[in-house]
Design a protein around this nucleic acid. Structure first.
Length: 266
DNA sequence: ATGGTTGCCAAGCAA
């Protein structure tokens, strides 16, 4: 069995205590972090190695963004795509030694506030990022390895049941029709299976993010499913479990995102 | 309609 988790941590240095808590409680094999907000030399390698996570692939930058994959199992970093072509650290790809499973850890741009690429260049960059990610997916050769799992903060909640209010959020970046369609084109490009939704079926409530801009996120429960774990079809058939640690949103100094975990029989 | 919060790093940007 191999277990993989994804978590937008919103500063790995500030939240090292809850990363350690999560790893000690869940003992996942692999944890994919987004928004580490540090450079590679600032990453807490020693603290994570001390609790068994000795294998790392860190793609960081100063102050913003940044992704890191930490593992108990040996891995080989094989790619760092810049799907925005602007130098931001938003992807790192690894292959697990032994199983050969590939894990692509991605942090899709949030896209700003205005869902109009003419008025808001960030929105266009988000759509273009997904376009390049789709071209990449078209080129994956799925025939000769154990399959690919792409995980991370996609910054899009595609289904009506992925948000607290479908109608209220149709013009809010993360749930606009054009974003959902663009993500759908990516999905079709490689027949990705939305593993989370294989286990927590639509239209069941499934959120992974709650804004900090709410006194009590549980009171109105205005969540969105921005984080995803999608597998190539053959690998998806090996998924044996999927769960959320929604309680982590209430831990001390929490991230605004929660961890997602998928288990594979491999 | 607006503003609400957080992190980085020391002003404003990104989310």
């Amino acid at each position: 069995m191999i277990s993989v988790a994804t978590w937008n941590i919103n500063s790995v240095r500030l939240r090292l205590p809850i990363v350690e808590r999560f790893l000690q409680e869940e003992a996942v094999d692999v944890l994919c972090l987004q928004e580490i907000k540090c450079q590679e030399h600032q990453f807490p390698y020693e603290a994570l190695a001390a609790i068994g996570y000795k294998h790392t692939a860190v793609h960081g930058q100063k102050g913003y963004h940044g992704v890191a994959t930490v593992s108990r199992l040996p891995l080989r970093e094989y790619s760092r795509h810049d799907w925005q072509a602007n130098g931001e650290a938003r992807h790192v790809g690894v292959e697990l030694e032994g199983s050969g499973m590939r894990i692509d850890n991605v942090y899709v741009p949030a896209g700003g506030d205005e869902p109009d690429r003419d008025k808001n260049p960030k929105f266009g960059q988000k759509l273009d990022f997904l376009g390049r990610m789709t071209e990449w997916a078209n080129d994956i050769d799925g025939a000769d390895h154990a399959g690919t799992l792409i995980v991370g903060d996609f910054n899009i909640a595609p289904l009506p049941s992925d948000v607290w209010g479908h109608k209220q959020l149709l013009k809010v970046v993360s749930h606009t029709p054009i974003e959902c369609e663009t993500l759908d084109r990516f999905k079709s490009a490689h027949d990705w299976v939305d593993v989370g939704r294989e286990f927590i079926k639509d239209p069941e409530r499934y959120y992974s993010w709650w804004s900090y801009r709410s006194k009590d996120h549980k009171a109105n429960d205005r969540g969105r499913r921005l984080d995803h774990m999608w597998a190539t079809p053959k690998l998806a058939t090996k998924a044996s479990g999927h769960r959320l640690r929604e309680d982590a949103r209430s831990w001390e100094k929490p991230s605004d995102h929660i961890p997602l975990i998928t288990e594979f029989d491999l």
